[in-house]
Design a binder for these strands. Structure first.
Length: 264
DNA sequence: CGGCATGTTTCGCC
DNA sequence: AGGCGAAACATGCC
């Protein structure tokens, strides 16, 4: 999926739908609960939230819709895609990739007045899904609420590589593969390091990198706007900090890009 | 054509 | 029991 930053961008763009009433929905029932249309039709959108990488749409006296994006899911609001192209997904907008279409109106249900969908979830690979009243209690501290203390608590005595821990949504919710590499680069920590071996100072640096860099990447448009942007990840040029060639290693089944000179 | 991809879940093996 | 890695999922792109 898109990472938490993309979810946050979509959450913001979905705010224009607050106050509208869902008058109809179309679903791909392979990734949407079978009773979705019945349960959601007629309910007014109350608020839009983000938890980790999940966008939540609360309805008045109805269920909370959860949008889970998988690797290639994206949101289109009133025909506008806030993120036109995901790095590793298609630039095309194929209606057949729609998994959810929500039709909404500012009045109570009157299908005759309904135009194009207010909200579309478009996902070529179909690794995403839609939930109703999902249980998100297993998620760890949200990426935007990380502090050194909370990060230290999330690490505990856990021995997996720190890169793996940052991707574990039950430890820290919202970081994905690109942001995890990015904050480790800024913190100067080798992604292979066993999480529990990080010193207090290293945990502080990591928490600080998360707090400082995420808002910057959010402003720039998402997870792909860091030092380790996609071109850099693919080519592994010299590190912009110290000139030593970047390296690629598979850690926890995911490609990690890092600098062997300043990340220790 | 082969390999890889901003992710999550499941399965089998220590 | 618990942790870890590989595989599976599904499809487009380079």
């Amino acid at each position: 999926m898109p990472e938490g930053l993309e979810a946050e961008i979509w959450r913001t763009s979905l705010e224009v739908t607050v106050g509208r009433t869902v008058v109809d929905a179309w679903v791909d029932d392979r990734v949407v609960p079978p009773d979705f249309v019945d349960r959601i039709t007629g309910h007014r959108i109350d608020s839009v939230r983000r938890v980790g990488k999940v966008v939540l749409i609360d309805t008045v006296d109805g269920p909370t819709i959860g949008l889970h994006f998988g690797m290639t899911g994206r949101v289109i609001v009133d025909g506008i895609a806030p993120i036109d192209r995901l790095q590793y997904a298609s630039a095309r907008d194929e209606p057949e990739w729609d998994r959810l279409r929500l039709f909404a109106s500012r009045r109570a249900a009157s299908p005759a007045l309904v135009g194009p969908p207010a909200i579309r979830l478009n996902d070529p690979r179909r690794l995403g899904h839609v939930s109703l009243d999902a249980d998100l209690s297993a998620l760890g501290v949200d990426m935007m609420a990380v502090t050194s203390g909370r990060l230290r608590a999330a690490i505990g005595r856990r021995q997996p590589a720190i890169k793996t821990l940052l991707l574990d949504q039950s430890a820290v919710a919202g970081l994905g593969n690109m942001c995890a590499d990015e904050v480790l680069w800024w913190a100067g920590i080798d992604p292979h390091r066993a999480a529990a071996t990080l010193t207090d100072d290293e945990v502080r640096r990591l928490a600080s990198a998360i707090r400082r860099r995420l808002p910057i990447m959010l402003r720039r448009g998402g997870s792909h706007t860091g030092v380790l942007e996609p071109d850099v990840r693919a080519a592994c040029p010299p590190c912009e900090r110290d000139g030593v060639p970047l390296r690629r290693d598979v850690i926890g089944g995911r490609t990690a890009v890092w600098c062997p000179e300043h990340q220790r």
